[in-house]
């Protein structure tokens, strides 16, 4: 009984499909697929070569890869740091290996803290500058320059000693010192 019912149901949907197929085929036969297909193929063949060429998959893929490479190169040029840092690192490495200056470089890389008495260095710098200036202006021979520099160094060491003296003593000594150095200059220049 159940089997009969199932068969009846199967027959029913099969009949439905057959009817649908029959009706659809009738209208399909009326439409000429061959001529429509021919028309579409001709249309496709008439398309300009460039249009078809640029729409090809390998062309699109190759184009995208090329574009990505160019973009990547531009990005690296813009955003990546210059080779300066790597060069500096390489120089430093070479220096360390060549001169065993590792400790010195390490110290130098630490930010400089102002030490007490560093103003003497400033004074020394200006003394040297004065000597060079005088050497340019006056006609001083090369042999005199070391002597003058020695004088400047001496002056700086004297300033260091003055730090321990009273302001009154310092004033007198400074005056004497300046007159002494001036007379030295005049002697040398003459």
């Amino acid at each position: 009984m159940k089997k009969d019912k199932n068969e009846k149901e199967t027959f029913k949907y099969k009949e439905l499909i057959q009817k649908e197929k029959k009706a659809a085929l009738q209208s399909f036969r009326r439409e000429d697929l061959r001529s429509r297909l021919k028309q579409r193929i001709e249309e496709e063949q008439r398309k300009p070569f460039s249009q078809v060429f640029w729409l090809r998959k390998p062309v699109i893929v190759a184009g995208s890869i090329l574009l990505l490479i160019v973009l990547g190169w531009i990005m690296t040029q813009i955003f990546l740091p210059t080779s300066y840092e790597s060069e500096a690192r390489a120089i430093r490495k070479d220096l360390v290996q060549a001169f065993r200056l590792h400790g010195f470089i390490e110290e130098a890389s630490v930010p400089i803290q102002p030490q007490p008495g560093s103003e003497n260095l400033y004074e020394l710098e200006w003394s040297i500058k004065r000597v060079i200036y005088a050497a340019q202006r006056e006609s001083i021979t090369d042999e005199d320059i070391p002597q003058l520099l020695c004088q400047a160094l001496q002056n700086t060491s004297l300033i260091q000693q003055e730090d321990e003296k009273s302001p009154w003593e310092m004033k007198i000594e400074k005056r004497n010192e300046s007159s002494r150095s001036e007379s030295n200059f005049h002697q040398l220049s003459s």
Binding site: E20, K21, A24, L25, F28, L33, R36, I41
Partner: peptide, 24 residues
């Protein structure tokens, strides 16, 4: 091919278009 398309699609018009596409 048209009948297979008819089974998969909604109606005969879709099936006809699909058949054309398949042959292309």
């Amino acid at each position: 091919v048209f009948l297979i398309c008819l089974g998969f699609s909604r109606n005969k018009t879709d099936a006809q278009d699909l058949t054309q596409e398949i042959y292309l």
